[in-house]
Design a protein around this nucleic acid. Sequence first.
DNA 1: GTTAGGG
DNA 2: CCCTAAC
Length: 553
Amino acid sequence: MEVEGLLENEKRETHIVADTGQALGCNSNEVSPSGMPQLESSEDSHCSEQHNKLPSIDEKLQSQIPLQETVPSGAKSSSDDHVTQSGRVGECLKPLDGPLEGGSSTSTGCISSKPDFSKLKGEICLDNLSIKELHEVFKATFGRDTTVKDKLWLKRRIAMGLTNSCDVSATTFVIKDNKLVKKDNEDGFNNVNLGAGKEHLAVAVEYNEDLLNNLSSQIDEHQTTSEVRLGNNVVENNFASEDLAADQRAAKRVRKPTKRYIEELSEAESKEYSGRSIASTKSIGFRPLPSKAHARPARNVSLEGRTVIMRLDSLGGFGIQVPCVYRIRRSRPRKNVTALLKFHPSGMGMTATFIKKGFDVHGSQMDNGSMNKVLEAKSTPEQAPEQFVAESKKETTPTDMGQNMGLKYVDPSGDTSDDNVVTVPTAKGGIRRKHHRAWTLSEVMKLVEGVSKYGAGRWSEIKRLAFASYSYRTSVDLKDKWRNLLKASFAQTPTDKGANSRKHPSMPIPASILLRVRELAEMQAQASLPNLSTGKLSACGGRSVNETRPGYL
DNA sequence: GTTAGGG
DNA sequence: CCCTAAC
């Protein structure tokens, strides 16, 4: 099952990254602006599973994947793979706080940086090269990386570059001595080229990326979990030796930006959480890179994370990369992670799609401000205060509070989705919810019920037990609401049973509920006061104080 | 991490 | 709702 999920992931990811643009120069381990929303997929559920398996998978990788240098020497045999790799592992973990080129001979393995000019020697049969190899050749030819995934394009481009001619056959891409060769006997060339080139390609990159992914995962613990890690898993390790697998893996690897990166981005913008979703190509280029990131060659493209959508706008073969990082929500740390995970697949997916649309329209010109608007426009409707309106109406006439309170009311709209809650930055840099989520009658009833059950003051308990389905209500919220209820209940004439006799039309709380609140309040007050008023009694009676609360059950 | 209170 | 002192 796990494998299935991974395979599916692979397929999907391949599609997603299919049109990845040029990522040259955008490479850094930590602040990589990459990543992609993985929400569109219906397979998000795999994330968590895969994530859990990561460590072991990595271990497998270490032992199974023949890592090869992508460096000029290029002829390393797999015999020393394990050695190099193990050394590399340690090194690759350092990027965040130290120089990558630690002087060790293996350091270059982390990122294939230099073009392998050896690839240009002799005859080159581009037809048989994988994308990855084509990229290598491309790099060797032009001295720069490309992330274009179009084989034909790559072949033509390379052929043109090598032959220094625009007259390139559309079907045959065998080059020898800088001249296009019409190959009649394909077999010979194929074998040679394939055998020689492929093994030196980016497996190391892949592996390192995984390490980085793990790192980043640890770093940004705040990220919403599921979508984040979706792509970070390496499953195909069993097939690592296969060129195709390696190519595909490399192609789809997109690393997600770290928390720090996101925050760096956000600093310059409006504080709205959605604001960080966008990083223009410009910002990427200028964003401060940690340590030696600058030295990194463009090869890192394949290292790019998954949190960013790389859109490639093809303009005459020139790729414009539009990374798209978005943050779903920034609000109080949520404790109900389950609810969050449950919700994301759908909600996030929609958001991601929406963002994509936005990009199509605005392109790289879109700044964070506009992104904010986009996100806001998107998320606001989903907050749907309306649903509560309807709900309130439905329950506005609770006849017998006693019965109602006893019932375990299930709020139809009581879904746990508190995502898409728009927050606004506060002066102090904090954030607060932009919209109040009006307390519905059912919520109030639940609150009252909870207080009656567990006692006022045990808010966390009430929240956990009675408000399990209302993830957006924090214990503080409950406390505040109760406070307000109390105030309201006592402000109003207790004896006035008229349901509509409330002072303020804006207060839809039925008198019956207020009455109940008042009763509870008095009971609780009595429960806590005895120490003073009947101190002697309680002192003599022993545990009466402790038993007062449970008594309300 | 919770709770209570003030803002 | 936010903020924060006090647990």
